[in-house]
Amino acid sequence: MVRVDGNGKTDSLIQVRGLDKTYRRGGEEIHVLQGLNLDVEKGDFVAFMGPSGSGKTTLLNLLGGLDVPSRGSITVAGDEITHMSGNKLTHWRARHVGFIFQMYNLIPVLTAFQNIELPLLLTKLSKSERRQHVETALSIVGLADRAHHYPRQLSGGQEQRVAIARALIADPTFLLCDEPTGDLDRKSADEILNLLTRLSTEFSKTILMVTHDPMAAERAQATLHLNKGVLVEGAHAGGPA
């Protein structure tokens, strides 16, 4: 289970210890994250909530290896990522992280199939194996009939489902979702949340999700609140709905 006191199991999937992130703006130092601890077990579905500017996205970027902390350590599946070089971090991301963004971030000139296939181009899979994987992912997200559609030909909900398929196609260690329903209407948002919940329960995916939406947070097994750079445990939803 998720812990923020720094006393989690030594074999936790994700271990964060004493994480600080400080930005310098003008002559002033802004402490976004301060001495943050976190332990996430394999298969956890965790929601991070907090007011704007509380450091949620910064935390997600640090966990995803897109940014480097000012102090502290992040260890994922035994690999400490905080001291990795840029190139090593890039390879690590390809192997361990699936990103899901608020604005979907699909490549507009590529079809749904090609967007989903992108992470597999970094693997040694053959073309036919890649095709097989993409078709499976498309059927999991319910878009088997939209494989050759471009993002502009899809609805927001469908785009996000393509993005989810892209995030999970290479079977990453964990999924990072930054406001995955933030740009969707309620119905589409529910569909996406259902899909994430299914990935958690059915496929035991570890999911870390930043959200402003309490209904989204309810789907997670645990909700953590970030306030003034410090994590505190919130109410447990008691498992997936």
């Binding site: 840029g86 890039t90 192997r95 992280v97 990103f99 963004f101 971030n105 507009p108 992108l118």
Partner: peptide, 14 residues
């Protein structure tokens, strides 16, 4: 810019 960043996030190197 965002497309490039997305691809780099996915794991494509510099």
């Amino acid at each position: 810019s965002r497309e490039i960043a997305t691809m780099r996030a996915i794991g494509f190197g510099s």
